[in-house]
Design a protein around this nucleic acid. Structure first.
Length: 543
RNA sequence: GGGCCCGUAGCUCAACUGGAUAGAGCAACAGCCUUCUAAGCUGUAGGUUGCGCGUUCGAUUCGCGCCGGGCUCACCA
């Protein structure tokens, strides 16, 4: 419809000798009496045309030759909007298509032939995932879903580092707890991992090996066991949220395959590297940065920037059209240097989208809980899922824009979990299933095609119009990387359905009307289910 | 001090990326179940969009300056 109207308006403008610099945009008006689709083209072009917006709109309107089977009404309104109202037959035809598309409704091929990679979570295996990781996990996974729905070939990747100082400390933390279990206590440093899970791992080692590991170094079996147990836990947690990765990328491989050294040489070849005081520096100042940064310490160890640069070079080599990095706000300072380096090396950095989500603040008994894996005073993602369920966790993290802080009052979430908005959505779905079950037992036949033209009540029309917005929502949410708008939209679908339910009894003596309304129920179920699939929440048949 | 994010109803948040009368959910108040699920529906109340300039047909949205909050500015990741 949009392309049809765009063509018509473009033609009218051409007749008037106006060539618009920006594409003609359409919006779905906020208010119903403004029609089904609106464009501000007359206001955008008014200055150029040297006319007043309303006059220009009227002139454009007079030149349009619209198909009366599609457009019922078309008028100039407000400061110069052109509003279009579609015909009932147009809507009913769309509705029939929706039902025919079923679980494919809302998919598009906008990203056809495009390879996308979404990198998220990427937490090192030093402890259980926190609530903060959860937000990134759910957000990243849903972005990936949206890209899949818009036709991209998507790969979810988890990047991790199982070497380095933190992992050394992890291994030694386990070692000290193990010695503790053998009755050979040693002082436990403050900056070691304090969590109970460290004792659990130590206990597992003692159960399996007795005191045989007494002289084992921290980086041997202790680190190994810690890493493997913690990683298994992380994967289990993610799976409980319906998240699975196609690939786990170990930073170590970048060293093994010489990719880190290659990155240094590439930068050196561009004159962006120099040595000073035993360290290797990256000349970010030459790229507009404030000051140069160390990429290889005087100890010979690289800082995080260097492997990150090498990692992204590998991403480019692997041939993605779109590379998405999902970070928490605490990483906000880390990526500009990496992007600057890649840009200097002539990579097309517009293919990289860095998505930053702001922090989750946990309020427990009215107090802010500071999150630190090391101090173990965090609330684990597992605990949160156990408290409120995976659906609530996913939906809660998706309800808000990623760019705003998330306040999570744990006590409130536990207490009022029955009133969580996700139940409102799921209830609508369960209700539809119930109606369909009831209709089935009362002998309604699905063999006779429904006459959708019988759907004429305001609540019915309103529901139909809402349902038909779904594909557009999916596409715009995917394009903007904003899943929360889909969540908002589905609330609207549920509201429209509940209203319909109250105003229009579905199963009645009138067999033809019953068939039509059952069809509308099925259409609603399709949109809800498809929406749930993208958000990753379940679609219960009864509640 | 520099950078990023946020400030909207009592609370938690939206507002289709500059559109028309700023909307939902909780909480409050008043109604609706002998009928397909009341985890629902209807109505009422609640606002100087932190403050001030500017940009233009039009600003919650863009720019500048303040005020307040979060994160971040390592030879830690």
């Amino acid at each position: 419809m949009r392309s049809y109207l765009r063509g018509q308006i473009t033609g009218a403008l051409r007749e008037m000798g106006i060539a618009l610099a920006t594409p003609i945009s359409f919006d779905t008006p906020r208010q119903a009496d403004h029609g089904d689709l609106t464009t501000n083209v007359a206001m955008m072009a008014a200055r150029q045309a040297g006319k007043r917006p309303r006059d220009l709109a009227a002139e454009i309107l007079s030149r349009l030759q619209l198909d009366p089977a599609l457009i019922a009404k078309c008028e100039v309104a407000g400061p110069g909007f052109i509003n279009f109202t579609f015909t009932g037959t147009y809507y009913l035809r769309q509705l029939a298509e929706l039902i025919g598309d079923g679980d494919q409704f809302g998919r598009s091929d906008a990203g056809r032939d495009k390879k996308a990679q979404v990198e998220f979570v990427s937490a090192n295996p030093t402890g259980p995932l926190t609530v903060g990781h959860g937000r990134g996990a759910v957000y990243g996974d849903t972005i990936a879903n949206l890209l899949e729905w818009t036709g991209h070939a998507v790969e979810r990747e988890y990047y991790f580092n199982n070497a380095g100082r933190q992992m050394r400390i992890l291994g030694d933390s386990v070692r000290l707890r193990y010695l503790d279990l053998l009755g050979e206590s040693q002082p436990f440093p403050d900056d070691y991992y304090q969590g109970e899970y460290i004792r659990d791992i130590a206990r597992h080692l003692k159960d399996a090996h007795g005191d045989a590991l007494r002289t084992e170094p921290a980086e041997g079996r202790f680190k190994e066991e810690a890493e493997s147990e913690i990683f298994a836990d992380i994967k289990k947690t993610l799976k409980s949220l319906g998240i699975e990765f196609q690939s786990f990328y170990n930073e170590h491989w970048l060293y093994e395959q010489g990719k880190v050294a290659e990155a240094v040489e590439a930068l050196r070849a561009h004159g962006l590297v120099y040595e000073q005081e035993g360290a290797v520096w990256f000349k970010t100042s030459a790229l507009g940065g404030e000051k140069d940064k160390v990429i290889v310490k005087s100890s010979g160890e690289p800082t995080y920037r260097l492997p990150d640069i090498a990692y992204h070079r590998e991403k480019f080599r692997r041939g993605y059209d779109l590379m998405i990095d999902v970070f928490g706000a605490d990483h906000v300072a880390t990526y500009p240097d990496v992007l600057a380096a890649l840009k200097a090396l002539d990579y097309d950095v517009t293919r990289i989208k860095v998505l930053i989500h702001q922090f989750v603040t946990i309020l427990q008994e009215g107090e802010v809980v500071k999150m630190s894996t090391r101090k173990a005073n965090f609330i684990t993602l597992d605990e949160l899922i156990a408290e409120v369920g995976a659906d609530v966790v996913r939906y809660f993290f998706l309800m808000r824009t990623a760019s705003s802080h998330l306040n999570f009052d744990l006590a409130l979430a536990k207490k009022h979990s029955d009133e969580n908005p996700v139940y409102y959505l799921q209830y609508a779905h369960a209700r539809i299933c119930s109606i369909l079950r009831y209709a089935g037992t009362s002998g309604e036949s699905t063999a006779i095609p429904p006459d959708l033209a019988l759907l004429a009540a305001p609540a019915e029309i309103d529901l139909i119009k809402t349902l038909l917005l779904f594909p557009e929502m999916v596409e715009s949410c995917a394009g903007a990387f904003e899943p929360h708008r889909l969540a908002d939209y589905l609330q609207g679908v549920a509201t429209a359905f509940h209203k319909f339910y109250h105003e229009c009894r579905v199963v009645t003596e009138d067999a033809a009307l019953t068939r039509a309304r059952l069809a509308l129920c099925r259409a609603t179920r399709i949109v809800l289910r498809n929406g749930f699939t993208i958000l990753g929440v379940s679609a219960p048949e009864q509640m």
